[in-house]
Simulated scan of single mutants.
Amino acid sequence: MSEESQFCTFYLAGLFFGVQVTKVQEVIRYQETTPIPLAPATVSGLINLRGQIVTAIDLRRVLGLEDRPGDMRPMNVVIHTDEGAVSLLVDKIGDVLHADVDSFERIPDTVRGVARDLILGAYKLTDKLLLVLDTDRIVEPESAM
């Protein structure tokens, strides 16, 4: 019997991503953000999550993808970090997915740029690839620039 990993999945610009379920606090619908003056472009603002102030990071900007269309509202994947909760803004929420560890492949050496630093690898699924994000690297101050 092979081992499995569990992922909270979501979509960004048509790509299928996942983060370890153990890192996820909750998934919530669109929340109004309050902009932060002089914040990096990847920081969309702050959200109020039942009295807790949470930084919202736009994953499209972090990964260098084109901005979300103006009529599309992002969803929030709230993750645990050493500094507290952080919201990752995504296009659409997927399911919790179990992936066979044997189907995991590290990101190839030919991949360069920000993707190389933030994507751990991919799981080969029946009909698509699940790109696994390194949540620790995403919330590092250097990544949020």
Rank of each mutant, 00 (worst) to 15 (best):
Y123W: 03
K23S: 15
D58R: 03
D71Q: 14
Q52N: 13
I57F: 06
E105P: 01
I47H: 00
P108I: 01
G45K: 02
L49S: 13
S44C: 04
T34I: 14
S87T: 10
R73T: 13
L46S: 09
T22N: 14
R60P: 01
D91N: 12
L120S: 12
R68G: 00
N76M: 10
A56V: 06
P35L: 11
V27C: 14
V54S: 00
Q52D: 15
V62P: 00
H98W: 09
L65P: 06
Y123M: 06
R50P: 08
R112W: 02
I138Q: 03
A13C: 07
N48I: 08
G121I: 07
T22C: 09
Q31K: 12
E66Y: 10
D102I: 10
T81E: 03
T33L: 02
P74M: 03
Y11C: 05
D117P: 05
D67K: 12
E4K: 10
I138D: 00
G121M: 02
Y123K: 01
V24A: 09
Y123V: 03
R73V: 10
I28S: 14
K124Y: 11
E32Q: 13
S87N: 10
L120K: 11
V77K: 05
G113L: 05
I53K: 14
L130M: 02
G64S: 06
V96H: 13
C8D: 10
V139C: 03
G94H: 00
A39T: 04
T42M: 09
Y30Q: 06
D136E: 15
V77A: 01
S103H: 04
H98I: 05
D109A: 14
E32P: 08
I36C: 06
F16G: 00
S103V: 01
T126E: 15
M145A: 15
L131E: 05
Y123T: 05
N48E: 12
K92P: 04
E4R: 11
G14T: 10
L15Y: 13
V86E: 01
L49H: 07
G113Q: 06
A122N: 12
G84F: 03
K23Q: 15
V54H: 04
G18T: 05
D71Y: 14
V62W: 00
R116D: 10
R137I: 12
